[in-house]
């Protein structure tokens, strides 16, 4: 089962970080980063399969592809912002983490703007 590999790697990385933190606290951050990226890259294969499936269904059902692309972009931005914010929180810099989250929210709002305007136009057109 793949989940066992994920959990195993996570626990091994945490154990290594505990050992390193006692000797060299500054290296702990880098092991966290390496483990985080490695775990995501392992899961990325399955995720891309799901995304392709989503895209196929959207094309077949006639939904405008820009909406699906925007949705995927928003998911990507949310993931990266959360990844960076958690790493900064681990290192003890919660101020920087909140700034990263703020930037992520701003970018998501900016991306969601066109969708909102198109919905409003639709509503206005329907109104008598």
């Amino acid at each position: 089962m793949d989940i066992l590999r994920f959990v195993g790697i996570g626990i091994v990385a945490t154990a290594i970080i505990v050992v390193l933190k006692s000797q060299k606290p500054e290296l702990g951050l880098w092991v966290t980063l390496a483990a985080g990226t490695f775990l995501f890259l392992m899961g990325a294969g399955r995720l891309s399969a799901v995304i392709d499936l989503l895209r196929n269904y959207a094309d077949r059902s006639g939904i405008d592809s820009t909406y699906v692309t925007t949705l995927l972009k928003i998911i990507g931005i949310a993931y990266i912002a959360e990844f960076g914010a958690e790493i900064c929180k681990d290192a003890g810099e919660s101020a920087i983490a909140s700034k990263i989250e703020l930037a992520g929210k701003v970018m998501i709002i900016v991306l969601a703007m066109p969708i909102m305007t198109s919905i409003l136009d639709l509503v206005i057109r329907i109104m008598p």
Binding site: I9, V12, A13, I16, V19, L20, K24, L27, V31, A34
Partner: peptide, 13 residues
Amino acid sequence: LIFRIAAIGILVA
């Protein structure tokens, strides 16, 4: 990579 970083860290220590 994780093991390499751990090895470098312990070596440096």
